[in-house]
Amino acid sequence: MSTDGHTAPIRSQALLAEWVEEFRAQGDGVAGTLDVLLQDGSDGRDTGLVIVRLKNAPADVFMQPRDYDDPFWEATLTARGDLSLTPYQLASLAAEIVVAGNLCTFLQFKSLEWDRESGLRGHGAP
């Protein structure tokens, strides 16, 4: 429960997969792989997790809301060791990071929109 008496908004694996497909349909290509995984929240509910597995680096970008009842998103870049790149590889990696940033921004927008439409946020809600 959120502090205002409403159930906290949950973005399930299925809902996030729908949003990711909507993002892909807009033409923003992800060079690596893009997965939406089941993630168990602290109360056991499906909170979903979006992962971009980068093609041009041994790294992944994990995306999720900042906190359980928070419509704002964050991305965590995980790296596995040092990486030496040519200028072209570096530019390709930078392009992947830009697309990941665009996806995270899109998911945050969809979360805010979904929260408003569901009636769980808005008009003075925290």
Rank of each mutant, 00 (worst) to 15 (best):
G101K: 09
S42W: 14
L83K: 08
V20K: 00
Q89G: 15
E113I: 14
T47R: 03
N102C: 11
D60Y: 09
L38W: 07
Q64G: 02
A91G: 05
D35R: 10
L38D: 02
A94E: 03
V36T: 03
K110P: 04
V61I: 12
V98E: 11
F62L: 13
V20F: 01
D43F: 13
G124Q: 04
F106W: 12
A8D: 03
I10A: 05
I97N: 04
A75T: 06
L83T: 08
L90E: 07
P58L: 12
D70T: 07
K55V: 11
L37M: 09
G5Q: 03
G122M: 10
A94D: 03
E96M: 05
L112V: 14
L38C: 01
Y88W: 11
I10Y: 06
W73V: 03
V30I: 09
A79D: 02
Q89H: 13
L54A: 04
E22G: 12
A25S: 06
G122D: 05
D28K: 11
W73F: 13
T105Y: 08
R45N: 02
G119H: 05
L90R: 14
A91F: 10
V20I: 06
T78D: 08
T3H: 07
L37V: 07
G5D: 03
S2L: 13
A95W: 13
D67W: 08
L37C: 06
W114Q: 15
S12Q: 03
K55T: 05
I10W: 05
L107R: 01
A79S: 12
V20S: 00
D40C: 11
A31E: 06
A100L: 01
S111I: 03
K55Y: 09
R45F: 06
L93R: 03
A100E: 00
P71Q: 00
G124Y: 04
P65L: 04
T76S: 12
A25C: 02
K55M: 11
D60Q: 12
P71K: 02
R45I: 04
T47V: 12
V61C: 02
F109Y: 05
